[in-house]
Simulated assay, not measured.
Amino acid sequence: MRLSRRDDEFSIHLSTQTSELMNSRMHASEDALADLACAAIAGRSRPHVLVGGLGMGFTLAAALRGVGPGGTVTVAELVPEVVEWNRGPLGECAGRPLDDPRTRVHVGDVAELLRGGHSTYDAVLLDVDNGPEGFTHHGNNWLYSPAGLSAARLALKPGGILAVWSASGDSRFTSRLNRAGFRVDVRTARARPGKGAHHTIWLAHAPGPGGSRSGAGGGRKRSTRP
């Protein structure tokens, strides 16, 4: 990956691609990923949220706002350079969330934390690729596979939520989440407030205590913004 800057605007590209992976002007849907997930666990005492993918830090910053002063957010980033960029000038874009004492950083694959977790996280937020397939890193495919979704469910506390960002919708992934035992709500959010591309966010609710799946049924699709 490579980072470029023009005045106060940053962008990240794959080294082998000319198109942008992300731009600091367009992060409303990343904010929504964290906002929606944290709203679903509101009221929990000292929540622990896992963010897969640091990017430009916007999802991490929104998660920190959502968990409150007693919460913790662990962010996993596979590419060490992305962490260093966020510790440098890029960090100003999102308000330097890596400097927040509630932040824990894991430089490595988020899959390692999911495999090692058991009822550890109140919410898991995945924004590691363009959607439920490994575009930037083929190893990400496991995260969206039945095995990966099962690991995510086990890593969540009862009634926790798995939130997944995607550049576009995918009905097959919705079905896969349902088969993994989640109650699924599909939302859309704009890349920029009120404009820009429509991105998809899956909110996959894990069973509550005793395996209950209370609440509305899955598969509904709604927009978070006009």
Results as ranks from 00 to 15, higher is better:
Arg2Ala: 03
Leu3Trp: 00
Ser4Lys: 03
Arg6Ser: 15
Asp7Met: 12
Asp8Cys: 00
Asp8Ala: 13
Asp8Ile: 03
Phe10Met: 04
Phe10Asn: 04
Ile12Gln: 00
Ile12Arg: 00
His13Phe: 03
Thr18Ile: 03
Thr18His: 06
Thr18Leu: 07
Thr18Phe: 02
Ser19Lys: 12
Asn23Val: 14
Ser24Arg: 03
Arg25Lys: 14
Met26Gln: 14
Met26Ala: 15
Leu33Asn: 01
Leu33Glu: 00
Asp35Trp: 12
Leu36Lys: 04
Cys38Asn: 08
Ala39Pro: 05
Ala39Lys: 11
Ala40Asp: 10
Ala40Leu: 13
Ile41Cys: 03
Ala42Met: 04
Pro47Glu: 08
Pro47Tyr: 09
His48Arg: 15
Val49Trp: 07
Val51Asn: 14
Gly52Tyr: 02
Gly53Glu: 01
Leu54Met: 09
Gly55Met: 10
Met56Ile: 14
Met56Arg: 05
Thr59Arg: 08
Ala61Gly: 08
Ala62Asp: 05
Arg65Thr: 03
Gly68Lys: 06
Gly71Tyr: 12
Thr72Lys: 13
Val73Leu: 13
Thr74Gln: 07
Thr74Gly: 06
Ala76Leu: 05
Val79Ala: 10
Trp85Ser: 06
Asn86Gln: 15
Gly88Tyr: 11
Gly88Ala: 15
Arg96Gln: 11
Arg96Asn: 13
Pro97Leu: 03
Pro97Glu: 02
Pro97Asn: 08
Asp100Val: 08
Thr103His: 09
Val105His: 11
His106Arg: 10
Ala111Lys: 10
Ala111Tyr: 02
Glu112Trp: 00
Glu112Ile: 01
Glu112Cys: 04
Gly116Glu: 05
Thr120Lys: 04
Thr120Pro: 00
Tyr121Val: 02
Val124Arg: 05
Leu125Pro: 05
Leu126Ile: 14
Asp129Tyr: 05
Asp129Arg: 04
Asn130Gly: 04
Gly131Ile: 01
Gly131Cys: 11
Pro132Thr: 08
Glu133Lys: 13
Glu133Ile: 11
Asn140Leu: 00
Asn141Lys: 01
Trp142Gln: 01
Tyr144Pro: 01
Pro146His: 09
Pro146Gln: 09
Ala147Cys: 04
Ala147Ile: 02
Gly148Gln: 02
Ser150His: 11
Lys157Phe: 08
Lys157Met: 11
Ile161His: 12
Leu162Phe: 06
Val164Tyr: 00
Ser166Thr: 08
Ser166Ala: 15
Ser166Arg: 05
Gly169Arg: 11
Asp170Tyr: 06
Arg172Met: 08
Arg176Val: 02
Leu177Cys: 07
Phe182Glu: 00
Asp185Trp: 12
Asp185Ser: 14
Val186Asn: 07
Arg187Ile: 06
Thr188Glu: 13
Arg190Lys: 14
Ala191Ser: 15
Pro193Gln: 10
Gly194Arg: 09
Lys195Cys: 09
Ala197Pro: 06
Ala197Tyr: 08
Ala197Phe: 11
His198Ser: 15
His199Cys: 10
His199Asn: 14
His199Lys: 14
Ala206His: 01
Gly208Pro: 05
Pro209Arg: 14
Gly211Thr: 06
Ser214Ala: 13
Gly215Leu: 08
Gly215Phe: 05
Ala216Arg: 15
Gly218Lys: 05
Gly218Asp: 10
Gly219Leu: 11
Lys221Tyr: 13
Arg222Gly: 12
Arg222Trp: 11
Ser223Trp: 14
Thr224Tyr: 14
Thr224Phe: 13
Pro226Asp: 13
